[in-house]
């Protein structure tokens, strides 16, 4: 399966962006905590949080991109995504992390640290995906 590709940078990672949680609370993107995602998913009827462990990070043919391989969920299903190196993922208990945190911070002003193999990222799946 070819990796999923995200070629554009969404605006909501910009520092100061207002994010609405599932309970209606508004928070700035840089203030989000692990619990915010977990609690939002708990009240969602169709989405659930999965733990996605970074298993491998490699360069893409295009140097602007990286290919990240995750082990998703309790069955550790292998999923690869190709993303811009500055694309941030939220790591459990740690916060925003990307392959190139300097670029993420430069582009979005978003505090960000280096995404590493072994990091456990927050991801979503459908509750009824079986």
């Amino acid at each position: 399966t070819p990796p999923a590709t995200s070629s554009s940078l969404p605006p909501y990672f910009m520092k100061g962006s207002i994010i609405q949680l599932a309970n209606g609370e508004l928070k700035k993107v840089e203030d989000l905590k692990t619990e915010d995602f977990i609690q939002s998913a708990e009240v969602s009827s169709d989405l659930k949080i999965d733990s996605s462990t970074v298993e491998r990070i490699e360069g893409s043919q295009n140097p602007s991109f990286a290919i990240i391989q995750f082990a998703v969920g309790e069955h550790r299903a292998q999923v690869s995504v190709e993303v811009l190196v500055e694309y941030p993922f939220f790591v459990f208990g740690q916060g925003w992390s990307s392959c190139c945190p300097e670029q993420t911070t430069q582009l979005f002003n978003l505090p960000c640290i280096k995404l590493s193999v072994g990091d456990v990222c927050i991801s979503l799946t459908l509750k009824n995906l079986k």
């Binding site: 399966t1 969404p10 605006p11 909501y12 990672f13 962006s17 207002i18 994010i19 609405q20 949680l21 599932a22 508004l26 993107v29 989000l32 915010d36 995602f37 939002s40 969602s44 989405l47 949080i49 999965d50 996605s52 995750f70 998703v72 969920g73 069955h75 299903a77 292998q78 999923v79 995504v81 993922f89 939220f90 990222c121 927050i122 991801s123 979503l124 799946t125 459908l126 995906l129 079986k130």
Partner: peptide, 25 residues
């Protein structure tokens, strides 16, 4: 008078990647 400008509000799940393993069964 200054008109208040609407600030975009994004939904929380937009920020989380949807990593669904392909279901073959």
């Amino acid at each position: 008078n200054v008109e208040p400008r609407s600030v975009p509000v994004f939904h929380w799940h937009s920020l989380v990647p949807f990593l669904a393993p392909s279901q073959s069964e």
